[in-house]
Design a protein around this nucleic acid. Structure first.
Lengths: 252, 252
DNA sequence: AAGTGGTCTAGACCACTAT
DNA sequence: TAGTGGTCTAGACCACTTT
């Protein structure tokens, strides 16, 4: 393991505060500072590395975001101990399936106007029997169906065209986050489910197999729900991973 | 809906940069700035709100962390569109089960020294047949067993005592992240599984029921694996939730 | 009382984007 | 070329913790 640099190099094309982050990170990774230890104070770091207070504070800010340290006002800056709670599972894992469009195809099974049942009415804040647009589709990966998606949109002459088009075409709009959208926010819930016969048939597997069920509701800028649905994902094709504590991988 | 304040109040006991965050946040929430829109430049904001550049930049930094905006050097600061990829599911949801110790009990089923099989040897980087300490326990919520945990620790005279004690006592050490720990980092994987007969019996439910399986490996400061195991969680008792886009809830 | 992190100011230079 | 965000400096005052 090579020794860490002990000073800031102002010739190199890398901001001093980032160099400082790397220096301190490395010391923490190597165990030079252990969990619970106090780091040098900000004024000390200023002197040691010959940088201004703001530069030190930006470095500290970065380490805070990486969950490597915590600060106590009036006391000091301390190295954090590992804790599982900090772990987060990203939708990124889920998104990877959609990433290369070569291998992933979307097959539309059905688009139709249907009346909201009790559940749909509640989720979309409609009255039972109100019209909705239902979309059912299948995501196929290398020829295997792995996700079944069923979505319902409020039937609103104004919203319909944009919304429906965005959702129908490729599903990618929801993941990209580029350009304009009329959706303001959404709620996602991951639960476990067992496949119904219909779902199992569509996904080319057996009834009662376990599956991830990702339910989603999206709201517009009036905070009205406009879209509700669920992704049913074959359990044997998905996993969520994360790392906690002091790793060489960057997080956040 | 009440109108947002249009200026910084220096009398009130709230830092100007936080006030500025709230002002801009509210404008974005209300749709005054829509996804894709450019916010006023930093110098404009300085003039408008009579604060220094650093104060404005700290506000911008906060909005960036909240994933509400993105910046393009030389161009401007823009409101982000909703995208699912930003969504993260926190272990916090999982942790809640452990939170109030009144309702949650840990029952140790077994602690014993066993020889590593092929899988354990691989995960813990031991040789097959090396000694490990196995711990099996049950988490009981309001009288119902809901999580079965099985863990294996490397049998190391130096590590043993601390490690075993920490893990055995309450499991809470892993979640708290307070004080010192000899664990540097860990990997967590959530997958789906169906209950084996043994697991189903322990969890007081039926074979072939679906379950969340949370596998974990923890490493010490020499990056050697010291602990490996899995939590088997009754699928009907767990869910992970998150929100994406522009919400009134704070994230990160 | 001394030291710590939290906040703020008023400047400055740079690389980049838009026109 | 003018405007933008990214970086940095050298000060300052505050509330808080530690001794």
């Amino acid at each position: 393991m090579k020794t860490s640099p002990r000073h800031i190099d102002r010739e190199v094309d890398k901001p001093p505060y980032i160099q400082l982050v790397q220096i301190l990170r490395e010391k923490i990774e190597k165990g030079e500072y252990l969990p619970g230890d106090r780091l040098p104070s900000e004024t000390e770091l200023c002197k040691q590395f010959k940088v201004s207070r703001m530069t030190v504070r930006r470095c500290i800010q970065s380490l805070l975001e990486q969950q490597l340290i915590s600060t106590i006002k009036g006391s000091g800056t301390y190295v954090k101990a590992l804790n599982i709670r900090g772990g987060t599972f990203s939708m990124e894992d889920f998104y990877k399936i959609f990433e290369d469009q070569e291998r992933t195809k979307v097959r539309i099974l059905e688009v139709q106007v249907i009346r909201a049942d009790a559940e749909a009415a509640k989720k979309l804040r409609l009255r039972k029997g109100d019209r909705t647009i239902q979309i059912r589709r299948l995501l196929i990966r290398d020829g295997d169906p792995i996700i079944y998606h069923q979505g319902q949109l409020v039937y609103d002459p104004v919203l319909r065209i944009v919304e429906a088009e965005m959702e129908v075409t490729s599903l990618l709009g929801l993941f990209e986050g580029k350009g304009e959208t009329m959706l303001k926010w959404g709620e996602l819930v991951i639960e476990l489910a067992v496949l119904t016969k219909e779902e199992a048939d569509l996904l080319n597997t057996l009834t009662h197999q376990p599956a991830f069920q990702l339910e989603h509701i999206f709201y517009d800028f009036s905070d009205r729900p406009v879209s509700w649905g669920k992704f049913i994902c074959r359990g044997d094709r998905f996993r969520f991973t994360t790392t906690v504590g002091i790793t060489n991988k960057r997080r956040i």
